[in-house]
């Protein structure tokens, strides 16, 4: 009896400990969201979304230039990374997987290993890589949104490729057979059957990939730089993004320190809201697909 009681107490204690773990994981989340929201709301006004920091030294100003920069850089990175990532995933799933050629199989293994390695590259290393490319090709000192976008490509490709591969592999083989049996060439089958069928999953993959890079700071700090002014040209001159804006507001506080802090928190709030929105959208896309099935 005593042993049974001991065991029961151990089991009870264990259950309570696990519930505490669950709670413990929620505390930082609630704290992060609460702090960011409460401090970010102070400057969440019209000016924040309509003004840059040009000529501002104390209170006032906004993050229009950073929001624009984030959108431009993220868009450019997505535009470059997604074709590479989805193309690679397509090749692995549709061509390499069905091949008996030892060369293609070895190449596929190499590509998968490379994707794994890329997934582990620290983001600052991606930034340094682009810096090195610039130093060798254009000369040091060059900064541009495009260089930042290229650094983000390194981070985005493995993320999109991996989940894109999963999504493509889930397209039923029955649909492949149905299309091939109709006398459809393989490339048309891929474009007209595989891709449309996988589309919701690929869109969700894309959104998650964007949410992964939209908050990146370190690589952009290195190669896109910081500016107080608007810049619409990805290829010319410094372009600030929201995360870099947060960092620089916090880092280079002027006389009215509170104004800089407020702007940093508001930018953090906008950024957080954007990331959560992207995640929500990604889930919604996949859920809607599952409902129509």
């Amino acid at each position: 009896m005593r042993i049974a009681r001991k065991r029961r107490i151990a089991d009870r204690g264990f259950t309570i400990a696990l519930a505490c773990c669950g709670l413990l994981a929620l505390i930082p989340l609630i704290s992060v969201v609460w702090t960011t929201a409460s401090r970010g709301l102070r400057r969440l006004d019209w000016d924040f979304f309509t003004q840059s920091m040009r000529g501002i030294t104390g209170a006032g100003g906004g993050a229009l230039h950073a929001i624009t920069g984030t959108l431009l850089i993220t868009f450019a990175a997505t535009l470059i990374a997604v074709p590479i990532a989805i193309g690679t995933a397509l090749w692995l799933v549709e061509y390499a997987a069905g091949s008996t050629s030892p060369v293609i199989r070895a190449l596929a293994r190499t590509v998968r290993a490379v994707i794994d390695v890329m997934a582990g590259i620290p983001s600052i290393v991606a930034g340094l890589f682009m810096y090195a490319v610039i130093a060798v090709t254009v000369g040091p000192g060059y900064r541009s949104g495009l260089a930042g976008a290229m650094a983000l490509v390194i981070i985005m490709v493995p993320v999109v490729e991996r989940s894109g591969e999963e999504v493509l592999a889930r397209v039923p083989s029955e649909l492949h057979e149905a299309a091939l049996a109709l006398g459809v060439p393989k490339w048309r089958m891929i474009l007209k059957v595989v891709l449309p069928t996988a589309l919701p999953g690929l869109v969700s993959t894309l959104l998650l990939g964007v949410s992964r890079i939209i908050g990146e700071t370190a690589p952009l700090l290195l190669v896109a730089g910081f500016t107080d002014s608007m810049n619409y040209d990805l290829t010319d001159g410094r372009m600030v993004s929201l995360p870099v804006y947060v960092y620089s507001q916090w880092q280079n506080k002027g006389v009215d320190a509170a104004a800089y802090d407020d702007r940093a928190w508001t930018a953090a709030l906008v950024l957080l809201a954007g990331v959560v929105l992207l995640h929500g959208l990604a889930r919604l896309v996949v859920r809607r697909r599952n409902q129509t099935r």
Partner: peptide
Amino acid sequence: DALHLLTLSAALATLLLLGGVVVFLGIE
């Protein structure tokens, strides 16, 4: 099958990206 070539070049581009990272970091 041009699509095979296209996707294959995407896969090769991935290899090239990582190769580029190592080479350029090494050079600089």
